[in-house]
Design a protein around this nucleic acid. Structure first.
Length: 794
DNA sequence: ACTAATAACATTTTT
DNA sequence: TGTTATTAGT
């Protein structure tokens, strides 16, 4: 362990080693915060703390996964596995399932995603026959979310007249009623939305001191990553849990707090020192930036200095000075994208060590990606779109998940609505409407209604009753098997017996084929998870396990392996935590960045400035700030001015001298005196010669992969790149083992497990025979033949 | 129950 | 402009 500490600078080491009280680690951009967190946890374990008594909270699954992996390398997989490490939502979701009784919930509650929540709100507004222009479901849903994050229950809301006054002012006097009904609806469906996972944790701890005490004792040390993005609800959970031991370390960067619109409170980090001032709190600053050149760091610093709300720090870089941050001016959004395409090509032509993957285009709004997509396609620049629709958000996957949700929690109304008539089984909108009316009136679930339509007073004709009981029996048959079959086996049966597979089979269009393949991929993924779970835990992977996880997955958890050698296109928000050698921040214009919606208030502008800070600090070597004088906005052309943020940056750190020949961007560096003064030197990689950057002809559409799985989805050519996420990693393995003819004694090779020999074949003649292979490296494993990626060596 | 038409909309979105 | 969701019509 001691030698690990040698990898750290002084402040990093202090952050790792101070474990006797609360600490705030202010981690500037690129300052090695993850390293500190992982080493710190490793040190705690080495110092004798049991991994199972450490709670480490992150905001993304990805962050948790990566950190766990790195800790595993330091202190062993076994230890890393026992850590309570995960997102706020997954950790407290787990605790809520365990303690569901205390809240009057069933431990099999469904997690409603934002789509589900939105639908519930919409349904309530429709039922109440309210004007959805006044009561915009979107506004109502976000207000509900906001209130939950602030821990304001419908009752507390009603008790405070200021809330009602606000609603009247918003012309939504009935908001409180809708809020109340929404909560009721969720409860009746045994469901919690994302915000509930945190809110009910607070309720649990508030109303059950003995349960709070239990977890205070379990968690001897608490770590929180990205603390600047915690909301009030999260702040309070952490505070309560840390109250007893006061051994808490939060890590974050106030300068990168960019999620206030989701309830994040920058005050949490700004006031941390004060919150724990009586407990020997220590504030440690990580100020050396290991990512970017001094030029980029200085530019970012000069920008963020314009903010009033911030913790004082002095971020610096010891790398080579590098090129100044460049400002690129264009006449239109189209020209902007074309110039940048040219610059990328030029840089690549000059510096062979770089690939397309070393470039990122960062924009404020998703709509801006379009121009770049078009231009990159015509210029044969491969790209990937980041952060669009996740695998689990595809319609065909949601249909299957609808069935699976219903099996675990039949009261799940959103799942019920999704699949009761899919595939079509003659249960139309009228019938569904009647069922829901009865359910809502009696305050029971839709499922309860179809379980006993007569007793519930459902007035439908005899034929419909038969259809309904057919559906009920179908689901009940699945439910009967949920404990005896694992997640994969059950899902396989569900897909076939529900008629989903037959329905997919009918559609022969390219889209239909891809839907079918996605469902197959879901099965592959389940199969892989089932196998690996059995491997590592010795426990089968049950449907309930999968359902608890899947609701908390996002597009960020999807596989990224197809992203090599591609320029990344993404929003600045999505870029937080990432780094690229070359970054183009585009659309750096007033009313766009800062966004018009935010420029009304000082707080709003400050957050936009932090966002801009995040954008600049993603760059390792070269950063371009680009603006266009006109761009298409919502169909119409609009004129824009350069962003105020360009003026916020110390102009001596900028290179404005780009027009009309943008290539002077690179050549100017050595010639101007002000740059010499600052000792700016330019690495050879950025000195490029002018070459023609725009091909005259529109070459055939590029193969574009990744989030735009436009290229080839399972070999099916698609004309237009579509904005879809790639498969989650486990899903990437196609059923290549299909048709593999193995027999006992065969030597086989597996991409992950290496070489081995077939010991046994089970379940021959069943839909999914399994094969037991003794691998040289890791011993015996049971694989599902159809999905195992094994090759026979003859 | 499906399709075609049209109306409404368009910051950001770790869960 | 481009997408999405609802609605009308067959």
């Amino acid at each position: 362990m001691d030698n690990f500490l040698d990898d750290l600078n002084d402040s990093q080491r202090e952050a790792v080693c101070f474990n006797d009280g609360p600490s705030l680690v202010v981690a500037g951009a690129g300052s090695g915060k993850t390293r500190v967190l992982t080493y710190k946890i490793a040190k705690l374990i080495e110092d004798g703390l049991r991994p199972s008594s450490i709670l480490a909270l992150t905001f993304t699954n990805k962050a948790a996964r990566e950190m766990k992996e790195r800790i595993g390398k330091l202190v062993g997989e076994e230890n890393a596995k026992k850590l309570w490490m995960g997102t706020f939502h997954s950790i407290f979701g787990r605790i809520l399932r365990k303690e569901a009784d205390a809240l009057g919930f069933n431990s099999d509650f469904t997690i409603y995603d934002s789509h589900d929540s939105h639908n519930v709100v919409k349904a309530i507004i429709k039922e109440r026959k309210l004007d959805d222009k006044v009561y915009s479901p979107k506004k109502v849903a976000s207000r509900i979310s906001e209130m939950k994050n602030e821990l304001v229950s419908p009752e507390a809301y009603a008790a405070k007249s200021a809330y009602h006054d606000y609603d009247v002012q918003q012309r939504m006097p009935l908001f409180n009623e809708i809020y109340r009904q929404y909560c009721q609806r969720c409860k009746d469906a045994n469901s919690m939305d994302f915000d509930d996972l945190l809110m009910f944790t607070n309720v649990l701890f508030r109303d059950n001191p003995q349960i709070l005490a239990k977890y205070q004792n379990i968690f001897k040390f608490i770590l929180v990553d990205e603390y600047q993005d915690t909301n009030f609800s999260q702040f309070l959970i952490v505070k309560k849990l840390a109250q007893k031991n006061k051994r808490i370390c939060v890590v974050g960067d106030d300068a990168q707090s960019i999620y206030s619109f989701r309830g994040a409170r920058i005050e949490n980090i700004l006031n941390f020192e004060d919150t724990y001032k009586d407990d020997g709190v220590r504030v440690i600053r990580l100020e050396e930036n290991y990512r970017s050149t001094p030029n980029i760091v200085a530019a970012a610093n000069s920008l963020i200095q314009k903010n009033t709300k911030q913790i004082k720090k002095n971020v610096f870089s010891s790398k080579e000075q590098g090129a100044p941050v460049a400002v690129l001016s264009s006449y239109s959004d189209f020209e902007e994208s074309t110039k940048i395409a040219g610059i990328i090509k030029n840089i690549l032509a000059k510096d062979k060590s770089l690939t397309y993957a070393d470039f990122a285009i960062l924009y404020r709004t998703n709509a801006q990606s379009l121009t770049f997509e078009k231009t990159f396609r015509t210029n044969n620049i491969p790209y990937r779109l980041w952060g669009s629709t996740s695998f689990y958000e595809r319609g065909e996957i949601k249909n299957v998940l609808g069935y699976l949700r219903l099996i675990i929690n039949p009261n799940d109304e959103e799942a019920f609505k999704r699949v009761v008539n899919y595939p079509t089984r003659g249960i139309g909108d009228t019938t569904i409407g009647k069922i829901l009316d009865v359910a809502h009136e009696k305050r029971v679930s839709a499922w309860s209604v179809i379980c006993d339509p007569v007793a519930m007073g459902l007035s439908v004709n005899a034929g419909t009753v038969v259809k309904l009981s057919g559906f009920r029996e179908l689901i009940e048959r699945f439910i009967a098997k949920k404990e005896e079959l694992d997640a994969y086996e059950l899902a396989e049966i569900v897909i076939h017996q529900s008629g989903v597979w037959a329905d997919l089979q009918k559609d022969k269009s390219p889209e239909g084929m891809s839907h079918k393949q996605n469902v197959e991929e879901l099965l592959n993924s389940l199969s892989a998870s089932a196998v690996s779970h059995l491997e590592s835990d010795g426990e089968p992977y049950m449907l309930g396990d999968f359902m608890a996880e899947v609701a908390l997955m996002t597009s960020m958890d999807d596989d990224d392996s197809a992203s090599n050698e591609k320029v990344t296109l993404m929003t600045v928000h999505a870029a937080k935590g990432l780094e690229f050698k070359n970054v183009f921040v585009v659309g750096v214009e007033e009313n766009l960045f800062p966004s018009q919606m935010s420029s009304g208030t000082e707080d709003g502008v400050e957050e936009e400035r932090r966002l801009f800070y995040v954008a600049i600090t993603r760059a390792e070597k070269f950063c371009v700030l680009s603006y266009a004088k006109s761009r298409m906005r919502n169909g119409a052309p609009s004129i824009s001015n350069p962003s105020r943020f360009i003026k916020d940056i110390d102009s001596s750190l900028l290179n404005f001298d780009l027009a009309p020949d943008y290539l002077s961007l690179y050549s100017r560096v050595n010639s101007k005196a002000q740059l010499d003064k600052n000792n700016h030197t330019l690495t050879s990689s950025y000195k490029v010669n002018p070459v023609r950057t725009q091909p005259r002809f529109n070459v055939r559409p590029l193969e574009v992969e990744g989030k735009t799985s436009g290229g080839l989805i399972g070999g099916i050519p698609q004309n237009k790149p579509r904005r879809l996420a790639p498969m989650p990693s486990a899903l990437s393995s196609g059923p290549s083992g299909e048709g593999v003819d193995v027999k006992v004694g065969d030597k086989v090779v597996h991409p992950q497990f290496g070489h081995g020999q077939v010991v046994k074949i089970e379940g021959l003649g069943t839909p999914m025979p399994k094969v037991v292979v003794a691998f040289d490296a890791i011993g015996e494993k049971t694989l599902i033949l159809k999905y195992a990626k094994i090759k026979v060596i003859r």
